[in-house]
């Protein structure tokens, strides 16, 4: 099972490349990654999934936290959390595809977004594993696919928040 790590980092040029660089530098694999600013425009939130072992994940968490631009790191598996992603798929045989989805993948939220040149764009929202098995089944029907990668959030009172600022006085 892939693990999910969520982190807050400075919304600054260079910050993302440090996070991604850490993965290539230390030989960790990333399955998916998504990043965007938060309600605080100085912070970006990044969610990534990785299939590394538990030991490596502990190292990854520590190494990430060591980056000066990374403000807080969270292992989403450490407490109850939910995980979702969105996929856009373009198909030419809309009716067939929709019926397949409705039959076997009813947990996915499905919307029809566009119909141009007899190609339909469908939006799917749901769990990564389910989207993945659907894509395998639809392989022959797909013209194009794009996915957000998984997003995650812990439930209830546990949240990814910044610590108090550290003040250094000389």
């Amino acid at each position: 099972m892939a693990s999910q790590i969520s982190l807050l980092m400075e919304n600054q040029p260079g910050a993302l490349s440090r996070v991604i660089g850490l993965f290539s530098q230390r030989g960790y694999n990333i399955d998916s990654l998504s990043v965007a600013p938060t309600q605080d425009p100085t912070l970006s939130r990044l969610t990534m999934t990785t299939s590394e072992s538990e030991e490596i994940i502990q190292q990854i968490l520590k190494q990430l936290f060591k980056l000066i631009d990374v403000v807080m790191v969270q292992d989403l598996k450490a407490s109850e959390s939910l995980s979702l992603e969105m996929a856009l798929i373009k198909v030419s045989n809309k009716a067939e595809v929709i019926s397949k989805i409705e039959k076997n993948y009813s947990s996915l939220e499905l919307n029809e977004l566009d119909n141009t040149d007899e190609k339909t764009i469908l939006r799917l929202i749901g769990e990564t594993d389910i989207i993945e098995s659907l894509l395998v089944e639809l392989k022959a029907d797909l013209v194009e696919v794009t996915r957000t990668g998984a997003l995650g959030m812990t439930l209830g009172n546990i949240s990814l928040e910044t610590e108090e600022e550290t003040k250094v006085i000389y």
Binding site: E10, I68, V70, K167, V168, I169
Partner: peptide, 11 residues
């Protein structure tokens, strides 16, 4: 600067 404010820089 006489002081620095850094986010999450634990020593």
């Amino acid at each position: 600067p006489k002081e620095l404010v850094m986010r999450s820089f634990p020593i």
